[in-house]
Amino acid sequence: MAVYKIVEVGDDVLREKSVRVTKFGPHLEKLLDNMRDTMYANQGVGLAAPQIGVSKRVIVVDIGDGLVEFVNPVIVEYEGTQIDSEGCLSIPGMVGEVARAERIKVKGQNRYGKEIELPARGYLARALQHEIDHLDGILFIDKAKNLKKVQ
Score class of each variant (00 low, 15 high):
D136G: 04
K114D: 14
I6M: 13
V68Q: 10
A49L: 02
D65E: 15
V7E: 10
G10M: 01
G66E: 11
V61H: 10
V3C: 11
I83L: 08
K5Y: 01
A48P: 10
H130A: 09
I75W: 05
G80T: 01
V19S: 12
S55K: 10
L28D: 04
K148I: 01
I104W: 06
A127V: 15
I116C: 11
N34F: 01
Q151G: 13
Q151C: 00
E102F: 06
F140I: 04
G64V: 09
V58A: 13
Y4I: 05
A48F: 03
G137Y: 07
M94A: 02
P26A: 13
S90W: 09
G44W: 10
P73G: 02
Q82S: 12
V71T: 00
K105V: 15
N72W: 03
D84M: 13
I63T: 15
Q43I: 06
C88K: 09
T38W: 08
P26Q: 13
R15E: 06
G64L: 14
L14C: 06
L135F: 03
H130F: 01
M39G: 05
Q129C: 11
G80Y: 04
A125H: 09
L32R: 11
G122L: 02
I141Y: 10
Q151A: 11
I141M: 12
L147A: 06
E131L: 02
K23I: 04
K149F: 04
S18G: 00
T22F: 11
R126F: 09
G108P: 04
V150C: 08
A48S: 14
K56V: 04
L14G: 06
Y40K: 14
K56A: 08
P26K: 14
L118R: 08
M39T: 05
G113Y: 05
K145C: 01
V9G: 09
G96D: 08
M1V: 14
G93R: 12
G25W: 07
E8M: 12
G113C: 07
N42F: 12
R103V: 01
P119N: 02
V60M: 04
I52V: 15
N110A: 00
V7K: 14
Y4D: 13
Q151P: 01
I83D: 11
E79V: 01
K114Q: 13
G96L: 07
G80C: 04
E79K: 15
N110S: 10
L28F: 02
I104Q: 00
R121P: 00
N42Q: 11
Q43R: 14
F24I: 02
I91F: 04
G80N: 10
E77P: 09
L32E: 05
I104E: 05
K149E: 14
T38N: 12
R100M: 00
I6C: 12
I91M: 10
Q82G: 01
V61T: 04
V76A: 00
N72R: 05
Q51I: 02
K56T: 03
I91P: 12
R20W: 03
G25L: 04
L28T: 03
